[in-house]
């Protein structure tokens, strides 16, 4: 059924991504690809994998942005610009437009935990869900002809055959900087809910009306570059006359 479950559901599983901490190493994207090519559904295929035009389906991609404050300068090392690494995967939206447009019922949002999934045996590969998603969270697997997306590692988080510490999405388990956190946003006392409350977690493109579950923690404020520059104490030379006044003038000029 591609109608959305009544919300807010009691349990809303998702990720918190800390943009202050992410170092842009792409390890989460690689471990995601590795786990999910052998996990839920069809393998994540690549086309021309060893050739010049390699491309394939990824469920997680890392963009890097430059942010320049108003009036800030972008000049070499003295720049006010800052670099923000930005991992992007499915946000498991509460008003997921990718779910309601699906004509076959393959795309669905689970009422029990809010995970948005594709039943690949029902998917006809029309691609409309990828058009409906403003975030680019869905990519067609060209080999299998079905739509792929983040499953929040549904085959890890409920998997009692692996150690408890591993029962989190692969990207979260891998992140060497601890920039990714997994938890239940339906529980106001959970670690992810607390983090979002303390750091002012934000929704991406709230104007699209999708009500994403995943939240991003904005980078912490940075001091302007000028504040860090060493300040030479001004020396008062008024009243100096003769040779030293001449010397002061010469030294000023050179």
């Amino acid at each position: 059924m591609t109608s959305l479950p009544a919300y807010p559901s009691a349990k809303r599983l998702g990720l918190v991504i800390d943009l202050d901490v992410c170092v842009g190493c792409h390890a989460c994207a690689v471990s995601c690809k590795e786990w999910n090519t052998g996990g839920y559904g069809n393998a994540l295929s690549d086309q021309d994998p060893y050739g010049p035009d390699v491309s394939g389906a990824w469920l997680n991609r890392i963009h890097t942005f430059e942010v320049v404050p108003d009036g800030g300068q972008v000049v070499g090392e003295a720049s006010d610009a800052r670099i923000v690494h930005f991992p992007k995967s499915c946000l498991h939206c509460e008003d997921a437009p990718c779910v309601t447009v699906c004509p076959t019922g393959a795309s669905h949002k689970r009422a029990e935990d809010g995970i948005v999934l594709v039943d690949e045996d029902k998917c006809i590969g029309c691609g409309l869900c990828a058009w409906a998603c403003p975030y680019g969270a869905r990519e067609m697997d060209v080999a299998a002809g079905v739509m792929k997306k983040c499953t929040l590692c549904i085959d890890r988080i409920y998997n009692e055959t692996i150690a408890e510490v591993d029962r989190v999405p692969s990207c979260v388990r891998t992140c060497p900087a601890n920039a990714r956190h997994f938890g239940d946003f339906g529980d106001p006392a959970s670690a992810v809910s607390t983090m979002v409350a303390e750091r002012g977690g934000i929704d991406l493109m709230p104007e699209q009306g999708t009500r994403p579950v995943n939240k991003y923690l904005p980078p912490r404020p940075r001091r302007p570059l000028a504040d860090s520059a060493p300040k030479a104490a001004a020396v008062d030379v008024s009243g100096v006359t003769g040779f030293f006044a001449w010397l002061d003038g010469v030294l000023e000029r050179i």
Partner: peptide
């Protein structure tokens, strides 16, 4: 709005 970084700048 897509990155949520508009509060910092362009």
């Amino acid at each position: 709005s897509a990155t949520g970084l508009g509060a910092i700048g362009r």
